[in-house]
């Protein structure tokens, strides 16, 4: 699936809460396909997008599929740069304890389990976004 060795910085920008609209789910579907293309992938969760990563989602009462477990599988797809904006969490009264712990296994370090979720402040996030070649918004 490699495109003649071109590697671009792809950023997937998530700013919407899950379930109220389909964007979170269909964004995740793109990311899972994108993982096969050997590009430099970053996921960003800002504004209400941070709610996509909460623990303990239970959709039994709304008749919709709970897709939140898929985020914890992203490490298996070699997606290891997941940025959550600190200010967005704070504004919503959330902390990292409210979020799933996302990990990946580092093949260059004897498959040691490492964090793939990074809480970053707006200045750092601003820098990350500005470095991207392709930004896909959902």
């Amino acid at each position: 699936m490699e495109e003649e060795g071109i590697v671009k910085k792809f950023c997937y920008m998530n700013r919407k809460a899950p379930y109220g609209t389909i964007y979170a789910l269909e964004s995740l579907e793109v990311v899972l396909i994108a993982a096969a293309f050997d590009q430099d992938i970053s996921l960003v969760f800002a504004d209400d997008g941070v709610y996509q990563l909460t623990k303990n989602q239970d959709t039994d009462g709304i008749g919709m599929k709970n897709f939140s477990k898929t985020y914890s599988a992203l490490g298996d797809y070699d997606i290891k740069k997941i940025y959550v904006e600190k200010e967005s969490l704070e504004e919503r009264g959330l902390t990292t304890d409210d979020l799933q712990a996302l990990k990946y296994e580092d093949e260059d370090d004897d498959w040691a389990e490492k964090d793939s979720l990074f809480v970053v402040g707006r200045d750092e996030l601003s820098k990350i976004i500005n470095e991207q070649d392709v930004v896909l918004s959902f």
Partner: peptide
């Protein structure tokens, strides 16, 4: 929406 505010917060 907050899209303009968010944009201005994060635009380098």
């Amino acid at each position: 929406r907050n899209s303009l505010a968010s944009c201005l917060r994060l635009a380098a």
